[in-house]
Amino acid sequence: MMAAVVGASLIVPLIPSAAQARPRLMDPAVTLRVVAVNGSGCPANSSVTTDVPDKTAFSVSFSQFKATGGSYKNCTLTISVGIPAGWTYSVYEVVNRGYGVLDNGAAGRILMNSWFTGFPWTLRADKTFNGPYDDFWQTDSAASALTFAPCGASANLILNDTLRVAGPATSSMELFAQDARVSTTFLLKWKQC
């Protein structure tokens, strides 16, 4: 089990009139705790959850999430997101990044689902890369409609990633990015309840 503290903010630009200045809304402070990490793609101590500098997203980094030809790897993370009273959030986009080396005739597939406990999937990515391929890859999954976490209730955020590779054992797909191995980024929108 791993824990991380994440800050997120909503900055509402208020332009005070000459006659009256309006008070600025307080930024929400968020606590992020990984409740469970399960799967062959994320053995113990191989994934880390952190915030990003502008506090409007958080990311999950994997260091051992790699599938080779004829196999698959998966990882399910359950993340408890603590937000202050009066606020809620939505994950409006999830970005996955990695690297693939696929021989001629091989194929690699990334399948990602994300949802709040008790709700249907909020975001999904399903992309296949065909060999020959030797390059970085990225999937961007944007929500067609925002699903906000319930106000005043606790709902865990679930991330389920699967990598599959068909072809010779020399082919592989990894879920990581060149920049500090940030693999999956959740982009957030905030609103007051």
Results as ranks from 00 to 15, higher is better:
residue 73 K to E: 09
residue 29 A to H: 07
residue 178 Q to Y: 10
residue 187 L to W: 07
residue 72 Y to N: 08
residue 3 A to H: 05
residue 179 D to W: 12
residue 63 S to H: 03
residue 74 N to Q: 14
residue 17 S to P: 13
residue 169 A to H: 12
residue 190 W to T: 02
residue 21 A to H: 13
residue 184 T to S: 07
residue 137 W to P: 05
residue 130 N to H: 04
residue 103 D to H: 06
residue 18 A to R: 15
residue 84 P to A: 09
residue 55 K to A: 05
residue 166 A to R: 11
residue 87 W to H: 00
residue 74 N to T: 15
residue 178 Q to P: 13
residue 75 C to M: 06
residue 156 N to W: 07
residue 152 G to K: 01
residue 59 S to Y: 03
residue 16 P to D: 15
residue 28 P to G: 04
residue 3 A to T: 11
residue 140 D to E: 08
residue 140 D to V: 09
residue 108 G to H: 05
residue 68 T to N: 06
residue 82 G to P: 03
residue 175 L to G: 04
residue 63 S to W: 00
residue 8 A to C: 04
residue 155 A to C: 08
residue 55 K to F: 10
residue 138 Q to F: 11
residue 4 A to E: 12
residue 186 F to N: 00
residue 145 A to S: 10
residue 19 A to N: 06
residue 83 I to C: 11
residue 61 S to W: 00
residue 104 N to D: 13
residue 12 V to Y: 04
residue 184 T to F: 05
residue 185 T to C: 08
residue 131 G to V: 00
residue 78 T to P: 06
residue 95 V to Y: 03
residue 170 T to F: 13
residue 41 G to H: 02
residue 115 W to K: 08
residue 21 A to P: 13
residue 99 Y to I: 09
residue 43 P to C: 07
residue 101 V to A: 01
residue 161 D to R: 12
residue 83 I to L: 14
residue 91 V to I: 06
residue 85 A to E: 11
residue 187 L to R: 12
residue 169 A to G: 11
residue 175 L to F: 13
residue 137 W to F: 15
residue 67 A to M: 01
residue 35 V to G: 01
residue 3 A to S: 06
residue 67 A to S: 00
residue 166 A to E: 04
residue 167 G to M: 04
residue 94 V to K: 00
residue 93 E to H: 08
residue 142 A to F: 14
residue 98 G to W: 02
residue 149 A to C: 09
residue 121 W to D: 15
residue 144 S to K: 14
residue 9 S to V: 15
residue 143 A to F: 03
residue 76 T to A: 09
residue 70 G to N: 08
residue 46 S to C: 10
residue 25 L to A: 12
residue 108 G to I: 08
residue 61 S to A: 01
residue 107 A to C: 15
residue 45 N to P: 02
residue 45 N to L: 13
residue 104 N to T: 13
residue 8 A to T: 02
residue 110 I to E: 01
residue 181 R to M: 04
residue 73 K to F: 10
residue 168 P to N: 05
residue 5 V to Q: 12
residue 83 I to M: 10
residue 106 A to Q: 09
residue 32 L to P: 06
residue 69 G to Q: 02
